[in-house]
């Protein structure tokens, strides 16, 4: 009788141990950096945002940083990507390495004539889905104006189901000063594209309040 009881206890323990919750509570963040034109000068701000992200993200979370300065977005545009280890000590080491890569990139980055935000967003959705993140964040550090290679088509609906798309530091262009409606129109177009694709849209321009990225 006691043997059966012990066996039942072991099976029950194994059952409890072996059935973790399938809901993922990890966060996945994909940050797109615009290095075209005047935005190269804004990279220091982007670096500060990445530092904030590295300090905020927990073991088990994922982070990727990519630039959107090529004519057509691809894997080679990813500056650094990492899923942090579940052990805090190892995750801290990974974060140091990540920071080093970003520092190197900021030091050596060159300006580009093109900006393919749509391509970057599509790549980020793939990355976040593969990482299995429970909460997905796509951060766009750009003025939201796309400069595509002639002949490229990007005006199609995008699928960003369950993604929180946050536009950071959306500066006004010189042409925006002439007619501010252009700025609002760009932001509104992206909002409608993201929301039509099943995602949520937010603009965070005050970089003193970066905690707003993960709110809402």
């Amino acid at each position: 009788m006691k043997k059966y009881l012990a066996l039942a206890l072991i099976i029950f323990s194994a059952f409890l141990w072996g059935c973790p919750n399938t809901t993922s509570y990890s966060r996945g963040v994909y940050m797109l950096l615009d290095t075209s034109g005047t935005y190269k000068k804004e990279l220091k701000r982007a670096e500060a945002i990445i530092s904030y992200l590295l300090g905020t993200l927990q073991p088990g979370d994922s982070l990727a940083v990519a630039r959107i300065d090529s004519g057509s977005f691809s894997e080679k545009d990813i500056v650094a990507k990492m899923t942090f280890d579940k052990r805090p000590s190892v995750a801290n080491q990974q974060k140091r390495l990540f920071k080093q890569k970003i520092d190197d990139f900021v030091r050596t980055a060159k300006g580009s004539a093109y900006t393919d935000i749509t391509g970057g967003v599509l790549q980020s959705v793939e990355f976040l889905n593969e990482a299995g993140a429970g909460q997905k964040y796509i951060l766009i550090f750009s003025d939201l104006k796309e400069d595509l290679v002639k002949g490229q088509v990007r005006d199609f609906p995008i699928q960003v189901d369950g993604c929180n798309v946050v536009a950071l530091n959306v500066t006004k262009l010189r042409s925006d000063n002439v007619d501010p409606r252009d700025y609002y129109q760009r932001v509104e177009e992206w909002r409608s594209r993201v929301e039509a694709g099943g995602g949520t849209w937010r603009v965070v321009n005050d970089l003193e309040r970066l905690e707003n990225i993960f709110q809402g």
Binding site: N21, T23, Q58, P59, G60, K86, R87, P88
Partner: peptide
Amino acid sequence: ALPMSEMVGGGSYIGSFKT
């Protein structure tokens, strides 16, 4: 609680609670 995450992992959950 914090050092336990070094042993059982900081990103795993049981239900809605951290392991």
